[in-house]
Simulated scan of single mutants.
Amino acid sequence: MQKGRVVFGAMEEVVYGDPAAQAVAAQMDRIGAQRALLMVSGTLNRTTDEIAKVQGALGGRCASVFDAMPAHSPRSAIIAATEMARAANADLIVTIGGGSITDGAKAVQICLANDIRSVDDMDRVANRPSPVAPTVRQISVPTTISGGEFSAMAGVTNEATRVKEKFAHPLVMPRAAILDPAITVHTPEWLFLSTGIRAVDHCVEAICSGEAHPYGDAQALRGLAMLATGLPRVKADPADLDARLDCQIGTWLSMGALSSGVPMGASHGIGYVLGAAFDVPHGHTSCVMLPAVMRWNKTVNRERQALVAAAMGHPNKDAGDVLDALIRVLGMPRSLREVGVCPEHFDNIAAQAMGTPWVPRNPRKIEGPAQVREILELAA
């Protein structure tokens, strides 16, 4: 008889297809928030009118705007945003942008609740299981599709150590996510498509996990099917809003298994290190690592990998090959060499990867750095 545990997150609503400005204002009405800190993409703020539209819809309820979050959510930027939130007496954080902004706001929630006021003071809450619960919550308008808005954890880069740290609490999951395909047309093609492969990675590692369960499978398999068809459609026609929305909904589904308790594996674990230590974008880490991890794992989860290939429309084919083909169709990098990572770095990457949350829970047991290096060599 099967047994298991399904965890439900703290998100209250997902709104899809409505314009972001209208949807953000409606969410503030719903929850009664009066002073929103907007944490937004600097590029979106400076080169489009999308942020101005949101500010216009909120009027006096927009307390301040922070638009200086670099990639990989470094500690110094978290502190700067936290201080802005304090000065504005914000009662809500609204994020409009990619995964680094979404994760950054999660960390800001924890810093506010735990009276964190300096980069060094963040040691008190980094990688800790039970910080003080956030009271200033978050609403997320994602412009990429890596799916971080559906997670209750954030990755923050410690600039001193070049290591990505976990900031987590059940309540850092946004209260609501707003999926507006129109706002994503400003996202650079490489970024939208590569973060789509990050979402594919969520689906695939969930399906292939040794801890998979039916609830997670249902979402991951459907999400994978939507992404496998939607991403090439966006590549072929960037103005196809229906395809973009399919990718956004597929991304939402891709996070169902992770947020309900299914762990990720070596692709995510190694990706953490590549991002923090080598500044490889999140999406590119999955483009490079996922097929290699699948091939290394195949001896222990061949039947689960067959589900992946079938969901992607290629039953009876090797899942690693199917993934490789999708990534190539999208024009994404397919080797560590292409993202600036050389074999002389492999030993350091392998050692760091063993300390991530996910490598120890890879479906094929990884006993030590030597086996991580085997995977890296497959992706070289």
Rank of each mutant, 00 (worst) to 15 (best):
A243K: 09
G275M: 01
A257P: 03
S260Q: 07
P188F: 10
G271Q: 05
R233V: 00
D201S: 09
I197M: 14
L179K: 08
D180S: 03
G256K: 01
G196L: 07
S259H: 07
L193M: 03
S259I: 10
A177S: 12
A243T: 04
H268F: 03
Q248H: 09
G223Y: 11
G271D: 02
F192A: 09
L227Q: 00
M173E: 12
P232G: 14
G261V: 01
M264V: 08
G250M: 11
D217H: 11
A177Y: 00
A243W: 03
D242E: 15
A266K: 06
P263S: 07
R233L: 09
A225C: 14
Y272M: 00
M173Q: 15
G250A: 11
P174E: 04
A257S: 14
D180F: 09
G256L: 02
A228W: 03
I197F: 11
L193P: 04
Y215M: 09
R198K: 14
V273P: 12
P174N: 09
L231P: 10
T195C: 14
L245Q: 07
P181L: 08
R222S: 15
M226G: 05
E205I: 08
A276L: 10
V200L: 12
V172H: 02
I270E: 00
M264H: 01
H213R: 04
M226K: 14
L274M: 13
A257T: 08
H186V: 00
C208D: 07
V185M: 03
G271S: 04
A257F: 08
A239S: 12
D242L: 13
A225R: 15
D237E: 14
S209F: 05
K235H: 15
E189A: 15
T184P: 14
T229Q: 13
A228M: 03
G230V: 05
G216H: 02
V204F: 10
A212I: 11
M264K: 06
A257R: 04
A239H: 06
D240F: 04
Y215G: 04
T195G: 11
T184Y: 11
H213S: 04
G196N: 06
A182H: 05
A199I: 05
P232H: 13
Q219R: 12
D246E: 15
G216M: 03
S194D: 05
D240L: 09
T184C: 14
R244C: 08
G230P: 04
E211D: 12
A228Q: 06
A199Y: 08
A182N: 04
P181M: 11
G250L: 13
R233E: 08
L245G: 05
S254H: 06
V185I: 06
G261P: 00
L274A: 11
G265Y: 07
A276I: 11
V262L: 00
